[in-house]
Design a protein around this nucleic acid. Sequence first.
RNA 1: GUCCCCAUCGUCUAGAGGCCCAGGACGGCACCCUCUCACGGUGCAGACCGGGGUUCGAAUCCCCGUGGGGACGCCA
Length: 444
Amino acid sequence: MTVRVRFAPSPTGRLHLGNVRAALLNWLFARKSNGRFLLRLDDTDKERSRPEFATAIEDDLRWLGISWDEFARQSDRLDRYEAAAEKLKADGRLYACFETPEELKLRRFGQIADGGAQVYDRAALRLTERQVADYAAEGRRPHWRFRLEHAETGWEDLIRGRCAYHGTKLSDPVLVRADGMPTYTLASVVDDVEFAVSHVVRGEDHVTNTAVQIQIFEALGQAAGELKFAHFPLISDIGGHSLSKRLGSLSIENLRNDGIEPSSITSLIARLGTSDPIEVMEKPADLVDGFSFSKFGRASPKLDPDEIVRINAKLVHRLPFSAVADRLPAGADAAFWESVRPNLSKVGDAVEWWSIARSAVMPINAEPDFLTEAARLLPPEPWSADTWGAWTKALGASTGRKGKELFLPLRLALTAREHGPEMKSLMPMIGRSRTLARLEGRKA
RNA sequence: GUCCCCAUCGUCUAGAGGCCCAGGACGGCACCCUCUCACGGUGCAGACCGGGGUUCGAAUCCCCGUGGGGACGCCA
């Protein structure tokens, strides 16, 4: 059996860490199994779906390095859902309901007050033909619910193990809205059938849906057990609470604007909550080997936003010049990149060191006497990687200083920073005239 | 409120009754390297949510409690 999976976002917002995890895990599973990965836009909600979000989702996925083998849009397939709905009506599994959204809302409030289960009471099933005719005469358009089997529906989840729900604990789902549009619940199952999806991989916010979807799947004539499920736990914030409140700051758009590399995101997201260590991988394909649902735990992992930056720093320390050349300031070469790289946590931070090497810097000159002596001993050009060593050795001998006392004032004078890349590689880039001026406390 | 799930170092986890006075990774700390910092290397500290049971023996099984997550939409 060929593995076919799908990532099915609704274009009602940008991608964030939570969504992307679903996309990545599906993609990894497809790659691991030599299967196919389908991107499907679940845009049956006309009110909230927007084409610009669809475009943004595709852009974000491409940026992350997640590619898809097939593409579908639910709004292109409405005839398929209508055909399925007709079949279910013919089989007596879909029944017309006339409650307004307001009535349903009130009924739910009442159920909460009574402490009862918030399950649709199937009032529409008890409507007489006369009542139905009256509603029609009033001009009310029905919405359609799927009559659930009041039995236990279960499945063997690839992450959660045995799961089961009893039909009496579930509401008959609305499959067709009063305006005739299908809901996600119908469209999703129809697509899973027609695209021959083999595994549904998604967050555990969908577990309860699964029992319902299996019933619809069967009502559509599919054999139970043909579709496998894997529900992974949702990520929580560092305090252990739902991540949803801070999704904005964890949107892919935001992380990208912050200078985070796509691989830092995929490296973290693919391994978080698994028994594999979180390692820096240069591309998503490097995460395929060893990927397995059996390595996922059932508890919600906490995500520390600092972790993303730490991973990014490690990644940047390894990136070759060729991978970043087009993002460095004009003129920056491989030698520059390799000398500043170990001190960066983001590629963009390189510009700061480029300007320290090539533009005017106001030095921090706390010890003029010492720096005057340093200027006196400054070797003539040409300078190399050995110049710093020779210079500081001579300066140490002449002043009796060593260690931090010797080196820190020089670093402050030459770069105006306490920390930074190795001075021996920075110094030739700064050059003698600029160095001399900075030692004398002049901006240069 | 009802239903489902979860609970081991700060974090991600290993652990399916004796192999565990609990192992690994990240972070932290210390030391080394070196030209201060960073990078790199080595080492150290650090946890079984609480209470009852079952058992010769429980991190592991059962019950209760507590804490957390999810679901209960004419959203997906």
